[in-house]
Write a protein that binds this DNA or RNA. Sequence first.
DNA 1: CTGAAAGCGCTTACAG
DNA 2: CTGAAAGCGCTTACAG
Lengths: 340, 340
Amino acid sequence: MTIGNEQGGTVATLRDVAALAGVSLATASRVINGSTQVTTASVAAVSSAVAKLNYVPNRAARSLARRKTHMIAMVIPEQTSKFFSDPYFAAVIQGAAMRVSSTDYTLTLLIESDADPQKTMRFLEGGNVDGALILARHSRDASYVELSRSLPVVFGVRPLIDDGSEHYVVDVDNVEAAAKATQHLVDRGCRRIATISPPLDTSAGIDRSAGWRHTLRDAGLDAAQLEEGDFTPAGGAAAMRRMLERGPLPDGLMAASAQMASGALGVLKEHGLTVPGDIAVATIDDNYFSTNSSPPLTTVDLATDTKGAIMAETLLDLIEGRPVKPLTTIETRLIVRDSA
Amino acid sequence: MTIGNEQGGTVATLRDVAALAGVSLATASRVINGSTQVTTASVAAVSSAVAKLNYVPNRAARSLARRKTHMIAMVIPEQTSKFFSDPYFAAVIQGAAMRVSSTDYTLTLLIESDADPQKTMRFLEGGNVDGALILARHSRDASYVELSRSLPVVFGVRPLIDDGSEHYVVDVDNVEAAAKATQHLVDRGCRRIATISPPLDTSAGIDRSAGWRHTLRDAGLDAAQLEEGDFTPAGGAAAMRRMLERGPLPDGLMAASAQMASGALGVLKEHGLTVPGDIAVATIDDNYFSTNSSPPLTTVDLATDTKGAIMAETLLDLIEGRPVKPLTTIETRLIVRDSA
DNA sequence: CTGAAAGCGCTTACAG
DNA sequence: CTGAAAGCGCTTACAG
């Protein structure tokens, strides 16, 4: 016994509202859309009809007439493991969803299929949304930068291409975030500070390793080892192992993501090394990987949910034609815990 | 300099396709919708026109004509903290989004505002979606059960009301999951097995505490302490503290969620108690809270992303009029790690 | 301030 | 198998 797909046709229509209020369709529409060109009598009559009928405008009809969908898309890379176990995505999505939920817009989740990445692009180009929030992989940057010529688009990560075309980015200053974490290690007296970096073909990898390097240089210290991770605990553990094999042992580690730091901590423990006794660890991003590890990690809070909210806000500004600056930088702050 | 909201009108329309293919609008539409009532010549002509023009059907127009939106909503409770730091929601959303992304449907995230819960309901009742996936709080069960009379609705958690009306649920068997975790403690020789339960006014709380209780009874053991938690690490820690204060110390703990277990572990450590030496700990749900704690936790995997996928699948079946059973149970399995 | 009318881009009986 | 036409439920110049 299933519900079937008839909805019973009980949904009230604008025509019903107008009839009950004793006005024309046009006037009813004006009242509903908050036009000032209507008498208070009309407003009253229509409003009460709306309440009585529990009227909700049909989005499809409205979209068609206005040629606006009132829908925005959030594009997310497929790579299941990442999305699922990476608190970053959950936080951005939540921030954006919360911001959007206070408007008349609707947020739709678009997973960019590895098998058919063009599907996402066709959807976006097909006029199905008023704008898009992009969290996808750098390998597809070019397509999205291109897309932003015909559709309002906001990137959550600086695209790696720079062909001079304009695009909008909301992100933290990753150079600065890495510098804060590294400087903290310098300040507490570390002299041989290594880093586990995000992949060096991502803007996070490029920027965070740069922040680490220049902070050391400014402090008059030599850069110790750099090992690349992949944003996962396993990747962080592997990087830590390589670092330990190659030696010498650093006295400070700037693990450039809490997930990687958490993996590194496990390896350190295996080797009987204490944190922060033998090696002080600072990281970047504050989530359960940084709060829940032992010891809890000194980190730089990236305010990722705020970033999601501001991405959404920026996109709405773009869609509605309000002025927007190309780059919005989210503030970060150091949080000192036990690991450094 | 902003993009503004003109899209340049470059999007091809069905009329364009028909003209280029030399057929009528009706025929073009038929080809695009896979009708068999068309000659192969028409199919060829239209297909090539579609490719040439990069045509994508306008969803709004299609929705209006078909009176179907091709959109499904996932309703999530506001309570920021939960959604954000609770891997459960991320997993369900991901599973559902992945499943939906292989169809022509679109998944929209609806956050049920604490301030105006009626807003969500109006949206759902307004014919804006073809169906809804409900993850919201039990306090609103009645509204959603009521809603499911006029809209296909699938619950991710068994609603607490039972007024005889039919509704569709996709969930794990929480009684059984708790029994598996508890039985494992019994099997390893624990005699005084306590539990930290989810809130007892939720179906998870009711079922998991029941599974714990009846497993002990079947084993001929007395139920030791039960303390209520709230699904968070802090709640688990508080529950553990109360348990320790009241005594006596149990030799086994079935902490009914990995987050709560993680909080409890911290308190045990504070008190110098070892796991599993002094007290063996088993939990429910497998995520970074169970894999990332020390020791890693023996747990029952709830396959939460699969649950999300099956919720979506079930809803699509409902929408398209395929037969659906009222309850779909997701399989769970015990994963033995170091904590018990 | 208000209403009649055209139009948004599709789908779908209906007639052929 | 195909096409002309009506209609889905709104919005918005246009005329008054």
